[in-house]
Nucleic acid binder design. Structure first.
Length: 565
RNA sequence: GUCCCAUUAGCUCAGUGGAUAGAGUAUCGCCCUCCGAAGGCGACGACGAAGGUUCGACUCCUUCAUGGGAUGCCA
């Protein structure tokens, strides 16, 4: 459909004295299908042409009427409504999907340029709860979308594996720790230590000093401390990996905060050389007041570093290592200010690539009881949600009895898919309240609905038997419902690009729902496996195209598409 | 106090400055002798408030209201 827009713009340009690009931007897709495939509003031309908009529309409509690409062109008030020739469009669109198969939806707008996507980035020794799902799943979808756009993507898990909290953890372990407990349930146990530390520190403030000293030793490479830290990190990562495996997520790098610990002195030095560092209240800061931002502390009063110090070192390292076209951070909107500061400081340091730092924020997840708090016990663990969804799915599968083999595998694909799809359904900036009955609802615009549609396509294709689909006759798939389905399928590649440009996976999610709805309507309106072999061939070709588009779309969201469910 | 974000149907959400603002869910009905009913069809039902810009505003600007977030040594 994109190519059509350009062709239409060229035709209109013959009538109107405007830049091609401007005409392109004026062409729109009517919200109502019976107003055509494309529309051109003529209000804006009234001034320059000194004619009433409907008259201008009439003139353009008449001049376009004979173009072979249109079936019909009509003027309605100030609009030129265009109906493209269905058969040719349907033939090209469906044939393209059949030819590209699993590559359908991909493009090469990226031209192999390197892009970094940093996502998930949990803190070591803290449990993975439902709040962490956002960065993890949104980031994973963005990495797949950029990959499909032809960028060379590096996936980074910027682990929170550094800071004073590790001083506390080591101190707690030394006082009350038990090796077996940590090995058996690392995160839960380490969290207990961390919590106990805070409780004890209230009555014994010397613990805080001990923690600071211990972290200082860790930073200086103390053997004992490093060994413990490494152990905590490894055990935690094992547990995270279990969740990533369930979600089918992989990384190219786990370079977290600790990785940059030895790269910070240079950055601090550089800030000094560039006269950006000033002393204030005993700490070293970068003054950002002229830019409407609060000051960014770089070194604490005791000389130790902060989050932004590490992120500065990290950004420089990534630029040197990857020479990125975009460095994308999928991080909660609470850190908007942090990323504004980060970008501004890099800009002040004279790095033109500061503009390629992209913060992709998302809204807050809370519970009905309030904000999540691990320490207060107000928390829902991600693994529990996934397992519960799998369990519910298994029940439904057993009730339906369609799937008898690989029940467990199918239950996983659908159950986890439901959670992922739900997460990627809305604009990421929206806050939401986690509700069990919402994630476990498998009716309506949900993951299972789309996967079910895919399985339905698969079922029809199985029933059709082996068929050679080449040379299908498009005239059998030009009915209103078939045509709307083809249009939705044909839009997928463009939708993927739009989602990438907006860093918004929900654009893809919603479009897959459109395709599924289009298919279900087509399925309901028409019989597919008819006796006439030519008609059957064309209709099966359309079913294959729909199945392919849904499957590829789901893959971009990090979801599987089972053949049966 | 200042800055940022959100506000659309009972609920959860779509909506590129353009035509009659779309879905899902809930509620009330209808459709399996036919390719999978986790489906389809129908009914009901909405742009926080006031100004402004524009031929035209849910969309852009201003003010206000409500909710959330951020606001120098946590990340």
């Amino acid at each position: 459909m994109v190519e059509y827009k350009l062709e239409i713009a060229k035709l209109i340009k013959e009538q109107v004295d405007l830049e091609l690009e401007e005409i392109m931007s004026m062409i729109e897709v009517p919200q109502n299908a019976d107003m055509g495939d494309f529309a051109f509003p003529c209000f804006k031309l009234a001034k320059t042409l000194r004619k009433a908009p409907p008259l201008i529309a009439k003139g353009i409509a008449e001049s376009l009427a004979n173009a072979s690409m249109f079936e019909k062109v009509e003027q309605v008030n100030a609009y030129v409504n265009m109906f493209v020739s269905k058969e040719e469009f349907v033939k090209d669109a469906v044939a393209e999907v059949l030819e590209k198969k699993e590559d359908y939806g991909k493009s090469n707008v990226g031209e192999g340029r390197p892009v970094i996507v940093e996502f998930s980035s949990p803190n070591i020794a803290k449990p993975f709860h439902i709040g962490h799902i956002r960065s993890t799943v949104i980031g994973n979808a963005i990495n797949k979308i950029y990959d499909a756009m032809g960028f060379k993507v590096t996936r980074i898990n910027h682990l929170g594996d550094y800071g004073t909290q590790f001083g506390k953890m080591i101190v707690a372990y030394r006082h009350w720790g038990c090796e077996e407990d940590v090995k058996r349930e690392p995160i839960k146990t380490l969290l207990e230590y961390y919590t106990k530390f805070h409780v004890e520190a209230e009555t014994d403030p010397s613990l805080e000093d001990e923690a600071r000293e211990t972290f200082a030793k860790l930073e200086q490479g103390g053997q004992e401390e490093t060994k413990l830290w490494q152990w905590f990190r490894d055990e935690s990562l094992k547990e995270f990996t279990r969740v990533y495996d369930m979600l089918g997520i992989q990384y190219d790098s786990y370079a977290g905060e600790s990785f940059y610990s030895d790269k910070m002195p240079q950055v601090v030095e550089e800030l000094k050389e560039k006269d950006l560092l000033v002393e204030s209240r005993g700490a070293m800061i970068v003054d950002l007041e002229p830019f409407g931002l609060t000051p960014a502390p770089i070194l604490k009063t005791d000389g130790s570093t902060l989050y932004i110090t590490r992120d500065l070192a990290c950004a420089k390292y990534r630029e040197n290592t990857y020479n990125f076209y975009k460095n994308i951070y999928v991080v909660a909107s609470q850190q908007n200010l942090h990323f504004q500061q980060l970008k501004k400081i890099l800009e002040l340091m004279g790095y033109e690539w500061a503009k390629d730092i992209i913060h992709v924020p998302f809204g807050l997840v809370s519970l009905e009881e309030g904000t999540m708090s691990t320490r207060a016990g107000r928390v829902v663990f991600l693994e529990d949600v996934l397992n519960k969804a799998i369990e519910e799915t298994r029940k439904i599968i057993e009730e339906k009895g369609v799937v008898t083999e690989n029940v467990e595998e199918t239950a996983k694909q659908v159950g986890i898919g439901a959670v992922v799809f739900n997460e990627l359904s809305n604009n990421r900036i929206k806050d939401y309240v986690f509700k069990w009955d919402k994630v476990l609802d498998f009716n309506g615009e949900t993951g299972p609905y789309v996967q079910y549609t895919h399985a339905r396509c698969a079922s029809i294709i199985r029933n059709a038997g082996e068929m050679d689909l080449t040379g299908f006759d498009p005239k059998y798939i030009t009915s209103e419902s078939a045509y709307q389905l083809v249009k939705a399928i044909a839009d997928l590649p463009q939708v993927v690009i739009e989602a990438g440009e907006k860093y918004e996976p929900s654009v893809v999610t919603r479009h897959i729902v459109d395709i599924a709805q289009g298919f279900n309507k087509f399925y309901h309106d028409e019989h597919i496996l008819v006796d006439d072999p030519e008609e059957k061939k064309a209709k099966v070709a359309l079913v294959v195209a729909a199945k392919t588009a849904i499957k590829n779309g789901l893959a971009l969201l990090g979801m599987d598409a089972p053949e049966r469910m």
